[in-house]
Write a protein that binds this DNA or RNA. Structure first.
Length: 227
DNA sequence: TCATTAAATTGTT
DNA sequence: AACAATTTAATGA
């Protein structure tokens, strides 16, 4: 199991902080184990923390009154989320649920604000982070209107392997086809066909319980091609 | 270390 | 949604 320090050292902004701020972070960040299907945060609850995914996989989603689930993002290890809500001092507008056993780092909002006040590089990180999310959202709105399952899966994978948002991101993240289905909003059967189709194109390789992207650029081209 | 079994994941209908 | 086939992980000799 990873430690707080291990996560922090692989976080791009942490080593850039002053010694004093680093100590503050060390003292105030807490780790939380989340069981599969467990909540990291629920819609309507006040936000106390900025969250970082240490291990596992978190799904950010909302369940409408009719029970329809919409997924906004899948967050692999290395992802931080919730800055928007924390910044507004607002309540969560969405649920964050663990797709499998996960470990989440909680950075109290008071400290989050202090980092914003005192570190320019930290501001920069958050700004780029938000910017990248915006880009992802735009891509998602597009892919949402596409009926082609392979394109939806491709977009979903591109989001997960985004090296800007998830610098830890390797080209291989353990991800079952069922989980991809939850994240991209299509059935596992269609995911199965889609990933194999893309594997045949040499864009990725699938094996038991994992998908490895072998050609990130090719996958980008595939996702943005005009049919 | 190897064989057996259970659980998880995949492939098909 | 259900089923069979396959892969992995766990167990114990």
């Amino acid at each position: 199991m990873k430690t707080t320090d291990e996560l922090l050292l692989t976080t791009p902004w942490f080593p850039t902080l002053t010694q004093e701020l680093q100590d503050q972070v060390r003292q105030n960040v807490s780790l939380r184990d989340v069981a599969p299907d467990g909540y990291v945060c629920r819609r309507g609850e006040p936000s106390h923390c900025w969250f970082g995914v240490v291990d596992g996989l978190i799904k950010v989603c909302n369940t409408s009154s009719e029970g329809r689930i919409m997924t906004f993002a899948g967050l692999p290890p290395g992802a931080w989320f919730g800055e928007g809500t924390v910044l507004k001092g607002d309540r969560w507008h969405y649920d964050a649920i663990a797709l499998r056993a996960s470990l989440v780092a909680c950075l109290p909002s008071a400290l989050f604000f202090r980092l914003l006040d005192e570190s320019i590089i930290f501001n920069r990180f958050v700004l780029e982070h938000v910017n990248e999310r915006l880009g992802q959202l735009m891509a998602m709105v597009q892919s949402d209107r596409l009926t082609e399952p392979a394109l939806r899966v491709a977009n979903c994978l591109l989001a997960m392997f985004n090296p800007r948002l998830y610098p830890l991101g390797k080209t291989e993240i353990p991800l079952t086809q069922e989980e991809i289905g939850y994240l991209s909003g299509i059935t596992r059967q269609k995911v199965n066909l889609a990933v194999r189709q893309m594997e045949a194109l040499g864009l990725l390789s699938v094996s038991y319980g994992r998908v490895m992207v072998t050609d990130l650029h090719g996958l980008r081209r595939f996702a943005t091609r005009t049919p």
